[in-house]
């Protein structure tokens, strides 16, 4: 090694260590990105890039072709827009409620209550489950002859077709997603809460500050850096949601619970014919959205560190 370093010089020697990593990174990250660009700008049904015809931005134009952007039915690719609107609605509801519940749970678990360790485990447990398992368990609960309807009937009520009504289906995909992921964010917020210096609380106690004032003037402001990380992480994960919903509802009824990642999967891999170009273009639009969210995270992080 030393001989090699002497031979090629210290500046070039760094490449000896960098090249293997760059090759792997290039093959598994940059090459797929480049291929995705190739597919997004080509058309036809062929799989091999060399057999596909160049169509420029036609796939993007087709996705964005709408008479009225607020009415998906008026769009050439109405399923793409339905998936986009569903994703926006899902992310707003799921992230909003999940962080609210995670914060409340973290605040409760931060107090000296009996069985605190047990409850931490209970809330974290769903995070350990595979998304497919989560979805299957909830499908058994929610199907026509599921546990929930059995209970409703036993209580003298009427069974409800939870997964066959657009409104109920959407409610349940949000609910199940919150149930499955809340524990992870609770744990991060709990760590943030425990990092707040105790002497600040002691000072507030000496000043006879009310619990509400302590929460709004001390806890929440000091928790804000952690909260920002949690919000941005939850937003990115929310946009990427696929497996749970795919198994739970298949995106139905109709396209009521189809999110953008499922649209890409269906267009590129499940439906016939496989429109790889359209799927690749949609995935690039999704990548743009995720990049905006990531930049937002970086910017907010920087701001909060400076603050």
């Amino acid at each position: 090694m030393a001989a090699l370093q002497r031979r090629i010089g210290p500046a070039r020697f760094a490449w000896v260590f960098l090249v293997p990593n760059l090759v792997i990174f290039g093959a598994f990250t940059y090459l797929p990105i480049a291929l995705n660009l190739v597919y997004a700008t080509t058309g036809g049904l062929a799989v091999l890039p060399g057999e596909r015809s160049f169509v420029g931005l036609e796939n993007f134009a087709s996705l964005l072709d709408c008479k009225n952007y607020l009415d998906p039915s008026s769009c050439s690719k109405d399923l793409f827009w339905r998936a986009l609107f569903n994703t926006a609605r899902f992310v707003a509801l799921q992230v909003g409620f999940m962080i609210l519940f995670a914060l409340i749970t973290a605040l409760v678990l931060d107090r000296k209550i009996r069985g605190r360790g047990f409850f931490r485990g209970v809330f974290f447990y769903p995070v350990l489950l595979s998304p497919v398992v989560v979805a299957l368990v909830w499908r058994w609960i929610l199907q026509r002859e599921g546990v929930l309807n059995a209970w409703l009937v036993a209580m003298g009520g009427e069974p409800v077709l939870w997964l066959m009504d657009a409104g109920w289906s959407f409610f349940w995909v949000v609910f199940v997603s919150i149930w499955a992921h809340m524990g992870f964010y609770t744990l991060i917020l709990l760590a943030g809460l425990q990092a707040i210096p105790k002497d600040v609380y002691e000072a507030a106690e000496m000043d006879a500050a009310s619990p509400w004032r302590v929460l709004t003037r001390i806890t929440l402001p000091l928790l804000m850096p952690t909260m920002l990380v949690v919000i941005v992480l939850a937003l990115i994960k929310g946009v990427q949601t696929f497996d749970e919903i795919y198994v739970l509802t298949g995106g139905g009824p109709g396209s009521a619970t189809m999110l953008i990642v499922q649209y890409i999967y269906e267009t590129g891999f499940a439906a016939q014919p496989r429109l790889y170009g359209l799927a690749a273009a949609a995935s690039l639009l999704l990548a743009g959205l995720l990049m905006i969210l990531t930049l937002l995270q970086l910017r907010l992080n920087r701001k909060s560190y400076r603050g």
Partner: peptide, 12 residues
């Protein structure tokens, strides 16, 4: 049967 067609999404 509503369950057959409506309980699924896409072309499943």
């Amino acid at each position: 049967a509503r369950d057959v067609w409506v309980s699924q999404g896409g072309a499943a």
